[in-house]
Amino acid sequence: MTMPTEIPAGDPASPSADDSRLWLERLGASGPRRDAAIVELHALLLKAARFEIDRRRASLPHLRGDDWEDLAHESAADALSALLAKLGDFRGEARFTTWAYKFALLEASVKTRRRGWQGREIPIADDAWARLADTSVTAGAHVEDTELMEALRQEMTGTLTKRQREVLVAVTLNDVPIDVLAERLETTRGALYKTLHDARRKLRIALAERGFRIDGTREEAS
């Protein structure tokens, strides 16, 4: 583990820089001084994890109080491990505590989302797309909208790979959290976002080549 010895950015004279420097000094020490810093840091991460989990309680009404507390402690412990492994990456561009919070919030949000989808089938089939494509031909639709939606439908099936289409539909139309989908597909959130990004880029290019602007109208021929 690389232990930074100084704050490389930000205002070195600011109170927050002093606080951050103190955190790094204590975590870089040995013996009781470091142990005390770890205990304090864990308490900070647990506070953040509880905050995140409280925000998400409504999404998991079947969990009991103990379950929530277990989830918070698991999140704080995993966040502490992740943070200590990344301590050398702290750049001092934000407070150390803000930097630390994001590890706990990420762990808590991922764990809560995964718990919410535990035992549920992931809808990766493109049923949602088929339903929405139907709405483009209802009586109220403008001609331009109908043409755009039809072009989009064709490009989704003709331009995208099956994997790109499944990821795009699952995340954007079926509201499957990207980290839940990543776990089921045995990949990472970053890799899956790249798949999503590439799919969107291909669709945008294909629609532009057909003369569509993304606001739903066709470009006037020049």
């Binding site: 755009l148 954007t172 139309l173 990004h197 945008r204």
Partner: peptide, 8 residues
């Protein structure tokens, strides 16, 4: 909404 979500 569909367009915004699909195309990003």
């Amino acid at each position: 909404t569909v367009l915004t979500r699909l195309l990003g």
